[in-house]
Design a protein around this nucleic acid. Structure first.
Lengths: 107, 107
DNA sequence: TCGACGTATAGCCAGCGGGCTATGAATGAG
DNA sequence: CTCATTCATAGCCCGCTGGCTATACGTCGA
């Protein structure tokens, strides 16, 4: 029952994980080792976070020899943006309704 | 050190809390009691979630007699949208760079 | 003034999850 | 073949937090 939107929010809630994702967004494809250097946590933890990000569809992995290259999946952010737009959309709707009401009152 | 963006993500990560926020977005100002009816959790829990949402700047409260009315603060979603745009922005940048590269190669 | 009502706070518990180390599995180098 | 390298997995621990009940606090009606 836990939908994609929920998973995206949960996944991006952790600062360490979000930092890893940000890094992939800014600097493109990176190996686990390269990410670990600046992550501030151990390599297994980085791998774990990457697995979580992958399950949420936020990253892709590409195996090349013994290293795994990860890259950001930008499109996966769409549900988040859509949700935010939907929420603020309700505000605009109400604003429109208010405007409409005022117009009617003006008549 | 935990900035606003971080707090917003953490706050919206919980499904129950996000549902409450969504409800406030969709249906406007609501009392704690009204929110509790459909929240699926006890009243104290709803109050707690509302306090968390308030600390994150996502809702406002208005006291009227013994009831407290809460309403969504849509503007508080801006950091979230900005962040998402920034992330996808890196993608566009890279796309532009690629386009530029292809142009140069074409010459 | 007193009781009922609406909300917030306190205190507790259990589970989730993020951190660690140790180790396994796969690949490359020599 | 053997050893080093790179990453993933396993197993553990502990703090955080979301849930609960009980209760305190403030407000309204009688």
């Amino acid at each position: 029952m836990t939908n994609a939107r929920d998973e995206i929010f949960r996944t991006l809630a952790d600062p360490t994980r979000r930092a890893i994702f940000e890094r992939l967004c800014r600097e493109g494809e990176k190996t686990v080792g390269a990410l670990t250097v600046h992550a501030g946590v151990s390599q297994p933890v980085v791998s774990k976070h990457l697995a979580t990000l992958k399950r949420a569809g936020l990253v892709r992995d590409r195996h090349e020899g013994r290293q795994t290259h990860y890259s950001a999946e930008f499109a996966a952010l769409a549900p988040l943006v859509d949700w935010a737009n939907e929420m603020t959309g309700f505000w605009e709707k109400k604003f429109d309704a208010l405007e409409d009401l005022l117009k009617r009152m003006d008549q």
